[in-house]
């Protein structure tokens, strides 16, 4: 919702942006992560906003500067700045959500928002086995490193040979992942899996959950109003 609201906001509504930013800080405070937690991590997303870097040069409008052979327009700059701020604030909120809500609850949320069941399961399995797979590739690389001694002659081998080794490792990792997936499927079938992923019904929505939801919606509506009116 937060991300959607921030996307809808028109360009250049600085007051509304400021309110959204304030909201992320308050939320960060509430979660006990500290205000800088999401702030620091959100910078990784900034390079993606650079996709909009051409805007100052391409959007027509009042010229404010010349840059080589290109002209920079005021409208374009405002649009770029707005996009950067909006994406940055949205990323912060997303970071807060994923940092505080256990993956399990996020999966519940996805299920309740009617995200297709198989997709939810895929995300769940991915989260579960990402680490297992990472461990496996780490072991492969360790095994290679452990046998990469330096002999008396020329060491290291040719580039082609090293490429073949790396390719073999990638292949063996894929085979292992494939075999593991078969074993997991067996383990599921052994416990009665017939093709449908079943889940318990959702946790009950409490009054405080409802109040929080109403509060958020009101706040975001207010921000949108400010953004469009001023």
């Amino acid at each position: 919702m937060f991300v959607a609201a921030s996307t809808i906001l028109p360009f250049g509504s600085w007051l509304a942006y400021f309110l959204l930013f304030g909201a992320t800080l308050v939320a960060a405070r509430f979660t006990g992560l500290g205000t800088t937690y999401a702030l620091r991590r959100s910078f990784v997303a900034l390079p993606f906003a650079l996709a909009a870097i051409t805007l100052p040069f391409t959007v027509p409008g009042q010229t404010i500067a010349h840059f080589g052979g290109l002209t920079v327009t005021a409208e374009g700059s405002i649009r770029l700045l707005s996009i950067v701020i909006k994406s940055w604030v949205s990323v912060q909120m997303a970071i807060l959500l994923t940092a505080t809500a256990p993956v399990h609850d996020l999966l519940w949320g996805m299920r309740e928002l009617r995200v297709p069941r198989p997709l939810v399961s895929i995300v769940g399995f991915m989260y579960r086995y990402l680490f297992v797979l990472a461990d496996e590739s780490l072991r492969l690389m360790r095994a290679r490193a452990a046998r990469s001694g330096v002999g008396a002659g020329r060491s290291g081998g040719s580039l082609v040979w090293r490429g073949r080794v790396a390719g073999g490792m990638a292949g063996s990792l894929m085979l292992r992942a494939f075999e593991r997936s078969e074993r997991i499927y067996d383990a599921m079938v052994a416990r009665g899996f017939k093709g449908d992923i079943l889940a318990m019904s959702s946790p009950v929505i409490t009054d405080s959950d409802r109040n929080a939801l109403v509060g958020w919606v009101t706040f975001l509506a207010m921000v949108l109003l400010i953004g469009f009116v001023f």
Binding site: L107, R183, M188
Partner: peptide
Amino acid sequence: GLVFQDPDDQLFSPTVFDDVAFGPLHM
């Protein structure tokens, strides 16, 4: 009840609860 050798194959759900509930739910 078949218990596999590698517990990483047997425990495939996000939490312990989900894994232990998997069999009974499918029953």
